[in-house]
Design a protein around this nucleic acid. Structure first.
Length: 324
DNA sequence: CATCAGGGCCCTG
DNA sequence: CAGGGCCCTGAT
């Protein structure tokens, strides 16, 4: 589907703002609904039932941030629709985040301070909706990255829509209702294995709860967590990612999986993870003590810094731990 | 060829 | 609360 209508939005994020590390997370596996180049991000978005193509461009600097969003659609978009879209982008990419308190507290922590200097203006961000993130979380479970990429690709080819805009062609996510109606066997043909059941049940449940993401944003941390855990196929590991990325709980860090434990042993505790692993309980206590309500955010800074090193060839040791 | 574990989660005992 | 089973794939 070629998107011919074009609209423009301008957004001025809070300063300091770093475009590339906010719009490109090298640790998120490649997904055929987004494409990044330095200073420019292409993505699709299913927003209020309309399939959009977005081109997000950096038009400012770290201290004077400015973003231009070109919105492509095949139907006319009202100004109220566009302003709701703008609000949603500000939310998903945390463009109004005030980092000053976090940076101030970090002054007492040399290691964190170093990372912040390098990644200044970085903010957590995730392009997808809650439902879309749940799908991603399920294909991540108990699989290597390569297999996760394959499963998501199969889902897009079966249920997504190809959108062409601004010289790019990317898949757009489907609404939950589209899979809610499908038989589990059809999903199994997409090599999802036992995850087929989870994806079907998640889609059915979310299809029955329109607007649930917006409502949950206003709920407490405990209520959000409880809802997520009530979803079939969503457990502590997935909840950890979603509480941080989707609900922006910068303090949330309750679960560390074995591969993450290895990496933190080296990255934060400066120990050889092949000789000894720092216990998860020790890690959680230490993070709480050092960074308190910003512990998730602090880890995000360390983590993204490491991954940017990795994509620039400066952290080769990571390669054998991530099994791309 | 067979076997096994992988960026979990559910269910059972 | 520990442990088995689950789909599929690639590594050994």
């Amino acid at each position: 589907m070629k998107l011919r209508k074009e609209y423009k939005l301008q957004i001025c994020p809070t300063a300091p703002f770093a475009f590339d590390p906010t719009f490109y997370k090298p640790d998120h596996f490649p997904s055929p609904d987004t494409h990044w180049e330095s200073g420019i991000k292409f993505q699709t978005m299913l927003w209020k039932g309309k399939k959009l193509g977005l081109v997000i461009e950096n038009k400012g600097g770290i201290e004077k941030p400015k973003i231009l969003v070109r919105v492509f659609s095949n139907s006319a978009l009202s100004s109220s629709y566009l302003s709701s879209l703008k609000q949603e982008l500000v939310w998903r990419y945390n463009l109004d985040l005030d980092l000053s308190e976090f940076y101030r507290l970090a002054r007492g922590d040399k290691e964190l301070q170093k990372v912040i200097e390098k990644m200044r203006g970085l903010r957590p961000a995730h392009p997808n909706s809650l439902y879309e993130y749940l799908i991603i979380a399920v294909v991540l479970q108990n699989a290597t990255v390569k297999r996760s990429v394959q499963m998501l690709k199969n889902l897009f080819e079966e249920f997504g829509t190809l959108l062409s805009f601004a010289g790019k062609t990317l898949y757009c996510f489907w609404p939950p209702s589209k899979i809610g109606k499908v038989r589990e066997e059809r999903l199994r043909e997409l090599k999802l294995g036992y995850r087929a059941k989870n994806i079907k049940l998640l889609s059915e449940r979310l299809a029955k709860l329109p607007g649930v993401e917006q409502r949950l944003r206003k709920r407490s941390r405990a209520e959000q967590k409880e809802f997520l855990l009530s979803l079939y196929g969503i457990g502590p590991a997935s909840v950890g990612y979603i509480m941080f990325d989707v609900f922006h709980r910068w303090d949330f860090l309750e679960h560390i999986s074995p591969w993450e434990q290895k990496i933190y042993t080296k990255l934060i505790f400066k120990k050889d993870y092949k000789k000894e692993l720092v216990p998860v309980s020790t890690m959680l206590e230490e993070f709480q003590k050092r960074w308190g309500k910003y512990k998730g955010l602090a880890i995000h800074y360390f983590w993204e810094s490491l991954w940017w090193d990795f994509v620039q060839g400066k952290a080769e040791w990571l390669k054998e731990e991530i099994r791309m």
